[in-house]
Computed example of a mutant assay.
Amino acid sequence: MTHTQVAPARGAAPLLVPLLAGGLVAVALGVYGRAHAPTGFAVGLAGFSGPLAMKAWLTTGAALLAVVQVLSAMALWGRITVTGSWVAPLHRWSGRLAFVLTVPVAFHCLYSLGAQYDAPRVLVHSALGCFFYGVFTAKMLALPKRGLPGWTLPVLGGLVFTALAGLWLTSSFWFFTTLGVRF
């Protein structure tokens, strides 16, 4: 191939496995959440006044770190000007920490409450939770792949952020505005 020839585009085919795996994760969580008999017992309160407070604050922490994710991704992609070698590690570690903060929340939701569809807010929240982990899985599996379309990571990252923002609105925001700000 000479320097004037262009390699054939592979398109979005390499995305097939990450998207299928993400879809399977989302569906599996939804099925488990619906089929599992909720225990009603709170787990991992770690000094919070109750399970709702724990979930509200951990989700708020994850949402704030998700904003750091968006800003650091914009810097990495050259959309905003930030200099320094600290941006990439900040992006990686804020994402890791945000994800870790969501795990006890999701565990509590699935184990204690299960997926619920009886109220619109809770229905949206349950669906967003499944979608969040599905699209997160797809993004993590797409990260090491080469030859993906340039829009892949920004779109998947944007979907992760949007899902987490929706989760925050249907949980933490609801908690703080309905029950008040408390730990």
Rank of each mutant, 00 (worst) to 15 (best):
T2M: 12
T2D: 14
T2E: 12
P14D: 00
P18W: 07
P18C: 06
L19Y: 03
G22C: 10
L24H: 06
V25L: 12
A28R: 05
L29A: 10
F41E: 13
L45S: 05
G47D: 07
L52C: 00
A53E: 15
W57G: 00
T59W: 02
G61I: 05
L65T: 02
A66N: 06
V67I: 15
V67F: 08
V70F: 13
L71K: 06
A73S: 15
A75F: 12
T81A: 14
T83I: 01
P89C: 10
H91K: 12
R92M: 06
S94W: 08
L97H: 05
L97V: 15
F99W: 13
P104L: 08
A106I: 13
H108C: 07
H108F: 04
C109E: 10
Y117I: 02
P120Q: 03
R121E: 03
L123S: 09
H125L: 02
L128A: 09
C130P: 00
C130Y: 02
F136R: 01
F136Q: 05
A142W: 08
L143G: 02
K145G: 00
R146P: 00
R146E: 13
P154L: 05
V155M: 05
L156C: 02
L159Y: 00
A163Y: 02
L164G: 00
L167D: 02
S172G: 09
T177G: 07
T178R: 15
